[in-house]
């Protein structure tokens, strides 16, 4: 069964690159431009992985992560932070909030594929 991945980023070019990379690997991909948009699109409970930026308008990545963990059907959905933020205190916050991994942008397509495969394995 095809795995469904949501990409949340306010940068259209990042969304485009991530979407293209994952589509080529056979994943089904939906995208959102910020945390609020992502919450509005999380309605069918069939997302296998959420990949999110940290700094976004309306709702940031950490707030989205915490919100998602409060939603029953997405409580165990893995969450990958994909951000330019490399501060170790932010990384710790991500870990405490329940993220599976923290990936620094910019990313190589192969690196993203390997990370996603490892999380979904």
């Amino acid at each position: 069964m095809t795995k469904k991945i949501m990409i949340v980023d306010d940068s259209a070019s990042i969304r485009q690159v991530a979407k293209m990379t994952l589509l080529a690997e056979g994943y089904e991909v939906i995208d959102a431009c910020d945390g609020l948009d992502a919450i509005n699109k999380l309605d069918d409970g069939k997302i296998n992985l959420i990949i999110s930026d940290l700094n976004m308008p309306n709702m940031d990545g950490l707030s989205l992560l915490k919100k998602v963990k409060e939603m029953g059907q997405y409580r165990f959905t893995p969450f990958l932070m994909l951000t330019t933020e490399s501060g170790s205190d932010f990384v710790s916050q991500g870990k405490q909030a329940g993220a599976k991994a923290w990936m620094i942008k910019p990313f190589k397509p192969e690196k993203l594929i390997n990370t996603v495969s490892r999380i979904l394995a």
């Binding site: 490399s86 501060g87 170790s88 205190d89 990384v91 991500g94 870990k95 993220a99 599976k100 991994a101 923290w102 990936m103 620094i104 990313f107 690196k111 990370t115 490892r118």
Partner: peptide
């Protein structure tokens, strides 16, 4: 002072 992670990916 602000510490940064060095790895591209950090798995938890």
């Amino acid at each position: 002072q602000h510490d940064h992670v060095e790895d591209e990916v950090t798995f938890f």
